[in-house]
Each structure stands twice: as structure tokens, then as C-alpha cells.
């Protein structure tokens, strides 16, 4: 398993420019997140993660694809600092030594599966929540959120309450909140899984646009293989519990990308490879979604 990982990393690193140059550009960037020997489980007998290592470099878009029940959300809760690892370290940014969970709280933007907007707050106040919690004065927090509303396609909704918005719009607010509140790292936990297929495709393109403009580091959980490949620089996959290493696919599709990329031959080849890594051997076209 780990051999494969190294191989994949080499491939990502040595591809000279590749297409769009994302591989080489990223390889020189410092790691913004390094996880070493991460071990965690709800019962001692069957841990979800056992000695897991991985790194994420600054500005990278990395997706995690695992079958359900293998602890994707648990992994994110560990990264966000909501859970403490039973063994191992999670280091964000410079503070490699700081293993304390409290040091991560407030430094990572977290977008949960459900939008989890506060129903009693307006769009603007929801978006400004993260800044507010980090001690920014309310006026300034609102001002900064208001400035970003148009960028996130939320112009004119600032006074609305969450129940007045569609599912896609609510996710945009949730994403804006995570962007404003967190530091350099954004964790997105299956943000589009509750949306219908049409809205989801729109939101994927939208996320690509926003990300290509701002280049924050994004960790993205999904169970949708197409979604993972379309959005990411790298896809980390695991198929057997406990997870001790991720298999990796470097996605060398040119950016900017749009939904049409899924039809390219390269994309389909990577998809077949990813499905194989997930233990879903496919014959023929490999068109099995989820």
C-alpha cells in the first residue's frame, strides 16, 4: 500500500509541467498539513485509522474518497481539532510541534455535510460568524462578508434568512462562512451530496471557479468518483479498514476545468484506476458512478 503511495507521489512530483503545470508547481510548496502515525477508533478492537501518514501542500485541492462507514467525517473532525488522535500527530502550517487540538480549533475552515447555518441569523451574519468568533468586531466582520457576497453568487441575499434560500445557495453561504472563518485550510465534508444532480454540477463548476481564483488549500470529502477527479489535484483513496495509508492518484488535467472534462479519455483512464484502487474492479466502460 505505502509503496504505491510513494510511486504516486513520485509521479506527481516528476511530471515536468505536465498539463497546466499543477504537478510541478505544487511539489515545491511547503506542506501545510502533515499527518503522522494517526491512529483513531471508536473501539480499541477496530480502529478506523492505524498509523496513517499523509501531507497536503499549500494551495492544493485534495479529495478523499472512501466507501461509507470508513471514517471520512471522523478524519475531518480529527483534522479540525474536534477529536483528539489516540496516537500520532496532526500539524498545520509552521507549528509542526504543536500537536494540541486546541491550537487547530479556529484555524481551519470547516464546511459540514449539512449546511448547518444558524436559522436565526441572516445570510450576512451567518457568513460573518467565523470572523466574529475569532474576535473581529461585528461591524468589520459584516463588512468583510458583505464584500465577498457577490464573489460567492450571493448578491442581494444578505438580509435573508437561511430558510428562504435554496439548497445550493445555503451551501454557498456555508462555504463563504468556512472561507472567512478559517485559516489557510478548508475542510469540505461532502458539501454537495444533498443537492440534486443538476444543482450539484453547477456547484462543482462554481467551486472550481472560486478556487482557481483564490487558491486556498482545500480538503474535500466525497463518495463521488467523478466529483473527486474533476475538482482535485490529488485524490486520496482507501478501500479497507483500518486505513494505514492512502493510495493516490495525481490528476493531471489542465486547469481551468469544467464539467466537460469528465468526457476526456484521460479522465476515464484515471477514473478506472481510481475505481480499481477502491476495490471496484470494472469491466468495460467503467461508468459505474458511486
Amino acid at each position: 500500500m505505502s509503496g504505491l503511495q510513494v510511486q504516486a507521489e513520485e509521479r506527481a512530483g516528476t511530471q515536468p509541467g505536465g498539463t497546466g503545470g499543477s504537478g510541478s508547481r505544487l511539489s515545491v510548496r511547503p506542506a501545510i498539513l502533515s499527518v503522522r502515525g494517526l491512529t483513531y477508533g471508536f473501539s480499541r478492537a477496530e480502529p478506523l485509522f492505524a498509523g496513517l501518514d499523509f501531507d497536503v501542500r499549500e494551495g492544493e485541492f485534495v479529495s478523499f474518497v472512501m466507501p461509507s462507514g470508513m471514517g471520512k467525517t471522523t478524519l475531518f473532525r480529527l483534522l479540525a481539532g474536534l477529536l483528539a488522535p489516540q496516537a500520532g500527530t496532526i500539524a498545520v502550517g509552521e507549528e509542526r510541534a504543536a500537536a494540541a487540538e486546541a491550537s487547530r480549533l479556529g484555524h481551519i475552515g470547516y464546511m459540514p455535510q449539512r449546511d448547518s447555518l444558524l436559522p436565526w441569523r441572516t445570510v450576512l451574519d451567518n457568513a460573518a460568524l467565523g470572523l466574529e468568533l475569532r474576535g473581529t468586531p461585528k461591524r468589520e466582520a459584516r463588512h468583510r462578508a458583505l464584500e465577498l457576497l457577490p464573489v460567492f453568487g450571493l448578491e442581494g441575499t444578505e438580509r435573508k434568512h437561511p430558510h428562504e434560500l435554496s439548497g445550493g445557495m445555503r451551501q454557498r453561504v456555508s462555504f463563504l462562512r468556512a472561507t472567512l472563518g478559517g485559516g489557510k485550510l478548508l475542510l469540505l465534508d461532502e458539501p454537495f451530496s444533498a443537492l440534486d444532480a443538476m444543482t450539484r454540477a453547477g456547484m462543482q463548476e462554481w467551486l472550481l471557479q472560486i478556487w482557481e481564483r483564490h487558491r486556498k488549500t482545500i480538503l474535500f470529502i466525497t463518495h463521488d468518483v467523478d466529483e473527486a477527479l474533476l475538482l482535485s489535484d490529488r485524490v486520496l483513496a482507501a478501500s479497507a479498514s483500518p486505513v494505514s495509508a492512502f493510495s493516490e492518484i495525481a490528476v493531471d488535467l489542465p486547469r481551468p476545468r469544467d464539467c466537460g472534462a469528465v468526457l476526456e479519455e484521460r479522465f476515464i483512464r484515471m477514473k478506472r484506476e481510481l475505481l480499481r484502487l477502491l476495490g471496484r474492479e470494472t469491466r468495460g466502460s467503467g461508468g459505474d458512478r458511486r
Binding site: 473532525r77 479540525a80 474536534l82 479556529g106 459540514p112 448547518s116 444558524l118 460568524l129 467565523g130 468568533l133
Partner: peptide, 14 residues
């Protein structure tokens, strides 16, 4: 009170 909102706020440093 929705525990997910609580988690989210703690993750944001509340």
C-alpha cells in the same frame, strides 16, 4: 440545540 452547529462553532474557535 443542533450539535452540528456546536461542533462547527467549536471548530471555528468558539
Amino acid at each position: 440545540a443542533d450539535p452540528e452547529i456546536g461542533d462547527l462553532m467549536r471548530a471555528m474557535g468558539a
